[in-house]
Write a protein that binds this DNA or RNA. Sequence first.
DNA 1: TATATATTTAGACAAATATCTAAATATTAT
DNA 2: ATAATATTTAGATATTTGTCTAAATATATA
Lengths: 84, 84
Amino acid sequence: MNAIFKALNDVTRREILELLKVKDLSAGEIAAHFNISKPSISHHLDILKRADLITFEKNGQFIIYSINTTVMEDVLQWILTFKK
Amino acid sequence: MNAIFKALNDVTRREILELLKVKDLSAGEIAAHFNISKPSISHHLDILKRADLITFEKNGQFIIYSINTTVMEDVLQWILTFKK
DNA sequence: TATATATTTAGACAAATATCTAAATATTAT
DNA sequence: ATAATATTTAGATATTTGTCTAAATATATA
């Protein structure tokens, strides 16, 4: 839970998730959406990976990232415990 | 949304919310649950306040904190956009 | 094999964060 | 009024975080 909330606590990482919600993208395609260096985006992707919020697959010289919505379910359940 | 995720990105603050889920508590009662100084807890309460995740009411020399679940609804909606 | 492209790793640095102690403010009780 | 209790504010400090550039790794192409 800690890793998930940590991962979600950054606007760039939340935007990456929004992008991957639409379709799978390579690291470079993701980086192209931001005014941030590629190494920084790579670091954000690493934090999202650690939280298991995204998965990746190597495709030649590219690495394709996908969103993993099953983890969102955990957050959802946590939030729901507060609904009265 | 930024303030909410920031507020949720700390285990102490999430535990404070769990406590307030059960019942309203004074700042001192909240602090008593943790091995952390009262000023630090006060700071955590301030961050939760800024995110509008808690409300408070003065009662004599005490300040009673309550959870505000309406904000949880915003997080819920955000999460739900990822459910496919 | 040499070069270009895609991505990550390493190391540095400034800004943000969680914590502390000491002091200030507010209320209650003697 | 004075002392005690509840809470916050102020200021300091160590750790974490987001960012950068430079270098390393891996794959594809000429």
